[in-house]
Computed example of a mutant assay.
Amino acid sequence: MTFTAPPTTAWRHLDARDGFEVTYFRYSGDGLLSEGCTTAVEEGETWIVGYSIELDASWTTRSARITGRSASGTRHTVLETDGAGHWRVDGTPAPHLDGCLDVDLESSAMTNALPAHRMGLRVGERSAAPAAYVRATDLTVERLDQDYVRVADEGTRQRYDYSAPVFDFACRLVYDESGLVLDYPGIAVRTA
């Protein structure tokens, strides 16, 4: 099953933090641009993260421009990749990200759509999906090893068993017809 064009979407953060995310999509050249903003209160601290992520036609990240604001000030970071797993963070080569094809923002439910689109897994297939992981409060960029296993669809909804061992976290992600997360247990739920 292929995905339909993504709509403007919103998520409400749950459990781990209290907040909201809104994302807009538009086709640009031979790819897609995802622009959004997420705000939250987490452990008594507030933050805002704005992003603009350029994707190629296969939903592989090409670049990400991220701005973060918290009580400690405003930060900016730019990630660029060649699409083959080699990255630059603020213009500096980042070999610790070699092999990553996706960006994953700690603050965003939307970025879990990137590997689901890009991998095109069939039911029963598994794939590692390491990502350039950007922290919400200080925009630190780390490598995040994660896995996706496509399980049986639920009607028109694709489902994946997701795990991120470094966080000792696993859940079942449910995606709508456009390949955007509807339910990210303990993290976020779609509201629009």
Rank of each mutant, 00 (worst) to 15 (best):
L55T: 02
E43W: 01
R75F: 03
L101P: 01
H96M: 09
G73P: 03
G85P: 10
A136M: 09
D138Y: 04
D138I: 01
A132H: 05
A71F: 04
G31I: 01
P115I: 02
A136Q: 09
T81E: 06
R150N: 08
V134H: 04
G29Q: 03
I48N: 12
A94T: 08
A113K: 05
V189P: 00
R126L: 11
T137M: 13
R17P: 04
T81H: 04
R172E: 14
T61F: 06
E21N: 03
L180W: 04
Y160C: 08
E42R: 14
P6A: 13
Y162D: 06
S178F: 05
R118V: 01
T74A: 11
R118Q: 12
Q146N: 05
V151F: 01
V22I: 14
V166S: 15
F20N: 04
S63V: 07
T38G: 15
R88L: 15
R190W: 06
P130L: 02
V78R: 10
T140K: 11
A10G: 12
V49I: 09
V189R: 10
T61V: 14
H86I: 07
A57K: 12
G85K: 02
Y24I: 09
G19L: 05
A128W: 05
G19W: 01
D153M: 10
T2Q: 14
V189M: 03
T74V: 15
T60A: 13
A129C: 11
L114F: 15
V41F: 05
Y175D: 07
G50E: 14
R143E: 05
R150V: 06
A136T: 10
G186T: 01
M110E: 14
V89T: 09
R65N: 12
M119P: 00
P6D: 06
A128H: 08
Q158P: 00
D145K: 04
C37Y: 00
H86T: 13
R150L: 11
